Amino acid sequence: MAKSVPVRCPACSREHSFTPPTFPCACGAPLTVPILAGPVARLDHRTWEDSWVAVRCHSCGRRDHWPQPELGCPCGTVVRLPVAEAPEETGSRLATTGGAGAAGATGAHPAPSSAVLRPAFHPVTIRTGRDVVTAAAQYLKWLGFTSMRRVEDRAPSGVDLRGPGIVAQVDPTTRPTGVRDVECLWLHGLSEAAVSVFFSLAGYARIARSRADELYLPLFVMDLTGTPQPVNDPADDLIRMGPPEV
């Protein structure tokens, strides 16, 4: 469990105990956001880009964006905690880590010899929640799914993208995607005899990942460059083989 750190509210001087959040890295290792000691910043205005921070996984070396830690004081003040952000690295270093930075630099995943040949993937930079859906649609087209369209009137199933033989959901929130969302998408795909694919910005809860593996549902995490990364074996297989009809 992550070690708690003391945080003092700059408005009322009340001291709180804050436990840094832990997220599941795509490699499967738990990643705890490293909180820096020092003064905190009062949050008066929140923007999309300021809500994320780059952190490097100590297990696999991948550099991904995760929700910026915040703390709400009972006095009504919200503070943003300083985080040790992951440094940028050279292309040669990134090419050996297999992390998110490497895929973002080349614009494509390393393909096994049996993989479908594709041109380089050109990501869509994410600045808003709508951009996340656009990036996912572009990626599915790159994988080989055609006629992708956005579901403007979001159904209770949570489907955001639809195409021939494919339904996809995109979670742009700062909380890890839960198991219920994964199961609902799988049931929707089952009813339409379609492949179900999930994209998430903040990753997945452990039980959601386990359930997706059981259902053979591909999971991807997104970074703010708009480059999805596979989280489980079904996602790796989808990248390698493409849509079922390919």
Rank of each mutant, 00 (worst) to 15 (best):
A105E: 13
R93S: 12
P82R: 13
G91Y: 04
P87S: 12
G76R: 05
C75H: 00
A120N: 09
E85D: 12
V116F: 13
P67K: 11
P123S: 12
C73N: 01
W66A: 03
G76I: 02
Q68H: 13
S113H: 06
T77G: 00
V124R: 14
F121T: 01
E88W: 03
R80L: 04
R127C: 10
R80T: 11
E88N: 02
V116I: 15
V116G: 11
A95W: 15
A105V: 03
T96K: 15
A115F: 06
R118K: 15
V116A: 15
P74W: 08
G72H: 05
L117H: 15
A102E: 01
Q68D: 10
P123Y: 09
T97S: 13
P74S: 08
H65R: 10
L81Y: 06
A86Q: 02
A103T: 11
G107H: 13
R127P: 01
C75Y: 04
G98M: 04
E85L: 06
Q68T: 14
G104D: 14
L81N: 07
V124M: 05
D64L: 08
A108H: 09
C75E: 00
S113I: 11
E70M: 06
G76H: 04
P110G: 09
V78M: 01
C75K: 03
G76C: 03
V116M: 14
G107T: 13
P123E: 11
A86N: 04
A103P: 01
G76P: 06
A86L: 08
P119M: 04
P112G: 09
A100I: 09
T77Y: 00
H65Y: 11
S113A: 14
R118D: 14
A103C: 09
R80C: 10
R63A: 15
H122S: 15
E70D: 02
P112H: 03
P87F: 10
C73K: 00
L71Y: 03
T106D: 09
S113M: 07
G99R: 02
P123G: 10
P110L: 09
T97L: 13
G99T: 01
P112D: 08
E89D: 03
P123N: 11
R118V: 12
A111Y: 04
R127S: 12
A115N: 09
L81E: 09
G91R: 07
G98N: 04
A103D: 05
G91N: 02
V124Q: 12
S92A: 15
G76N: 07
G76A: 06
W66K: 06
P110Y: 04
G107W: 11
S114I: 07
R80V: 09
V79R: 02
S92M: 08
E88P: 00
W66T: 07
A103N: 03
P69L: 08
L94P: 01
H109I: 08
A111G: 05
G104R: 14
E85W: 08
G72N: 05
V78G: 00
